[in-house]
């Protein structure tokens, strides 16, 4: 493959390696001086959504009956295609709220939901939202979705992307029906939405 003839000597650069080294040298120099203020790439949608799920646990009170005992973990169920990658795990790992650690469970659409305190309904379940919410609605589960109509369909919290920001919609009636109490701090940053009565 490498058979440069004399005509090509000038085109085949004489010292590619030297150039690479020069660039690398410069880079190292940049790294040493700049590492102090270097930042990271901006947040992705699901990184932020994962952090919201963790924060919800701080600002929502479940009835005592929602947990098997005082030290039982808070279970976050993810139903449908998991869009979080590592973000959800990273958001809750090692964290406790009121002494409760977190557990993440992946659930099929027809799974038993009663062990969950927070249920995230992925975008992939759009066509099954009605059925899932019917099942979860009567239980003390904080349902969280990301479909335009999620809160209208009596989901409790919906993520809405607006101007590249993740905003919240809350259906208070649905929260009350599930026996959940929401902190005013959470309500203050959300838009309140009414459910469609069928």
């Amino acid at each position: 493959m490498n058979k440069p003839d004399s005509k090509q000597q000038n085109l085949r650069t004489a010292k590619p390696f030297a150039r690479a080294m020069a660039l690398l040298g410069l880079t190292v120099c940049l790294l040493v001086t700049d590492s102090g203020f270097a930042g990271e790439s901006p947040a992705t949608e699901y990184q932020v959504k994962a952090l919201f799920l963790f924060n919800f646990a701080k600002y929502v009170d479940w009835p005592a009956a929602a947990f098997t005992n005082a030290a039982a973990p808070i279970t976050i169920g993810v139903i449908g295609t998991d869009p979080f990658g590592d973000y959800l795990q990273n958001a809750v790992v090692g964290k406790t709220i009121n002494g409760r650690p977190f557990i993440i469970q992946h659930l099929a659409a027809d799974a038993d939901l009663s062990g969950c305190q927070i249920l995230f309904v992925s975008d992939s379940e759009v066509s099954r939202i009605g059925g899932i919410l019917d099942k979860a609605g009567a239980l003390p589960i904080l349902t969280v979705g990301e479909d335009e109509e999620f809160a209208q369909k009596n989901g409790i919290i919906n993520f809405v992307l607006k101007d590249g920001k993740v905003r919240l919609e809350i259906n208070l009636a649905a929260a009350r029906k599930a026996g959940l109490t929401m902190s005013s701090k959470l309500l203050a940053v959300a838009d309140l939405v009414k459910g469609k009565t069928n």
Partner: peptide
């Protein structure tokens, strides 16, 4: 503005989180 650095994000309040600019393709 290194707000988006994930180390900081974790400590964000709800008010801050609703104002984080995110990338999305949905």
């Amino acid at each position: 503005n290194q707000a988006a650095a994930s180390g900081d994000l974790e400590n964000f309040s709800l008010e801050q989180l609703v104002n984080v600019q995110v990338t999305s393709v949905s």
